[in-house]
């Protein structure tokens, strides 16, 4: 066992080549997105499954989500440097899930400020022991306390960041996908970077509040945007239409669970029966649906 530990340590230690970059797409003027694949985090993709990217202003660049590990973070940084010579001034983390934050270390620099929801630090700190173990066992990432990078700018309600002739409006949301979701709006291109508040093709993953998530979607549905960037899935160019599948899934999940609770049924019953009509519409349904039922049930059984 000792031998394997040694060998695996050597193999999993990321080797960073200065030339490594990742594929990004300029979806609007100076707004770049790397689109992740719809896979479970595993030992081949090393957890690199989320949409991440950056926005360039006249003065400087902000990163939005840094990736799943320092290697992906470094590759994102290299990519930025091949596209612009402007300095990176901010790294915004949309929430604490490991596919979004563990590239942070690659950006650590006195000139770079890390930005997040005011509950992001707590979420990162209380979750990191769990994610580190999981990340090592399942995705082949060796994360350490050096990978815990907390925000120095915390957003309580909203905050404006100026990248030079480009003002981004950040919004801290009430509990929805997680209890610390942050979104970014770029008025210059009318782009809303929603991250995991919106899933497309990939089954939405509930880790916050089903009631909160539905009401945030209903609120945002009233607005119109030229582009919306989901945390997982393709770019949205028809917002009101594209948010419907996720809204429908969450509404059905809630409706069927509430009905079972009214009938005096239990979590075990819900896991077997709730919202399976949605199975064919989503990728990774079998991987996340039952967990979603558990999380939603635990919330809804406390409704009066």
């Amino acid at each position: 066992m000792k031998f394997f530990q040694l060998v695996s340590l050597l193999i999993f230690t990321p080797i960073i080549f200065a030339s490594d970059t990742i594929k990004v797409k300029e979806i609007a003027a100076d707004v770049y997105v790397h689109f992740g694949k719809h896979e479970l985090p595993n030992n081949h993709n090393h957890g690199e499954i989320a949409n991440i990217g950056f926005i360039i202003g006249d003065k400087c660049v902000t990163v939005i989500d840094s990736g799943a590990n320092p290697t992906q973070g470094k590759a994102l940084k290299n990519t930025i440097q091949t596209i612009t010579s402007k300095p990176i001034c901010y790294v915004i983390n949309t929430h604490a899930h490991p596919d979004h934050i563990y590239g942070n270390r690659a950006f650590k620099d006195a000139k770079v400020k890390f930005v997040g929801h005011h509950k992001l630090s707590r979420a990162i700190l209380t979750r990191s022991p769990y994610y580190f173990t999981k990340s090592k066992e399942q995705f082949g990432n060796q994360l350490t306390s050096a990978d815990v990078v907390l925000p120095s700018i915390e957003v309580k309600n909203t905050l404006q960041l100026d990248l030079g002739n480009r003002i981004l409006e950040l919004t801290a949301h009430p509990s929805a996908h997680t209890d610390h979701d942050l979104s970014i709006y770029d008025s210059k291109t009318d782009t809303l970077w929603l991250s995991d508040l919106l899933f497309r093709e990939h089954l939405p993953v509930l880790d916050g509040s089903i009631n909160g998530w539905i009401s945030e979607l209903e609120r945002l549905e009233q607005n119109s945007y030229t582009y919306v960037i989901p945390g997982h899935g393709a770019l949205v160019t028809d917002w009101k239409h594209s948010l419907q599948p996720q809204k429908k899934y969450l509404l059905l999940l809630r409706k069927e669970i509430r009905l079972l609770i009214q009938q005096g049924k239990f979590l075990e019953d819900a896991i077997k029966t709730v919202a399976y009509s949605e199975q064919k519409r989503w990728k990774l349904f079998n991987e996340f649906h039952k967990k979603n039922i558990s999380t939603a049930f635990a919330e809804l059984e406390w409704e009066e």
Binding site: D179, G208, S209, W302
Partner: peptide
């Protein structure tokens, strides 16, 4: 895997505010 170190519920503040509340549910 990871049940004991897993994050404390999805919405920690709501959980802390509600601490101590109890409900009985009996079939009608």
């Amino acid at each position: 895997s990871g049940g004991c170190s897993a994050p404390i519920g999805a919405d920690l503040d709501t959980a802390m505010q509600r601490l101590g509340k109890m409900k009985f549910k009996l079939q009608p």
